[in-house]
């Protein structure tokens, strides 16, 4: 029943209701399918066979299946190939060099008399503005 090239409908999972072709008969109750579904191993209990059988090679590649199925009106699912991402390299921790502590700037102590002078700025008397009244 489930020979190579048999058109089926997937009944279970997220690909349920989509049509596929048996590409390879695997051990036990399993077959390899491809077509509108993802190319994957599938249990026979999850497939509903149809009457049609398509001529394809055993273990046909995904490209070969797209060439045979697309003229028949099937939309073959093309998954994007996964990009092999490089493992992030562990960065060796480099200890940040602390800035060298420099001694506090020592301000020379002023004498009491000088200090009082420095604190109290000399009052600069502002010239008083006199109101000029001009009589016209």
């Amino acid at each position: 029943m489930f020979e190579i090239g048999r058109l089926c409908v997937k009944l279970a999972g997220r690909d349920a209701g989509k049509k596929c072709v048996v590409v390879e008969v695997l051990e036990g109750n399993y077959v390899l399918i491809d077509g509108e579904t993802r190319r994957r191993k599938c249990n026979l209990a999850h497939l509903e066979p149809l009457k049609e059988v398509i001529k394809i090679k055993a273990k046909a590649s995904h490209e070969e299946i797209t060439k045979t199925l697309e003229p028949l009106g099937f939309k073959v699912l093309n998954t994007k190939p996964k990009k092999a991402s490089e493992k992030p390299k562990k960065k060796s921790r480099v200890k940040k060099q602390k800035p060298v502590k420099t001694g506090k700037k020592v301000t020379p102590k002023l004498d009491v008399a000088e200090k009082s002078k420095a604190e109290k700025p000399v009052k600069s008397e502002k010239p008083k503005e006199t109101k000029k009244t001009t009589k016209e």
């Binding site: 409908v9 009944l11 279970a12 999972g13 997220r14 349920a16 209701g17 509903e48 149809l50």
Partner: peptide, 22 residues
Amino acid sequence: PERPYGGVLCSKCMRQQIINKL
């Protein structure tokens, strides 16, 4: 569930409906 009619029909009824459509 992430399948056709997920959250509306049980898996058995969903399968039966697909077969009935064929």
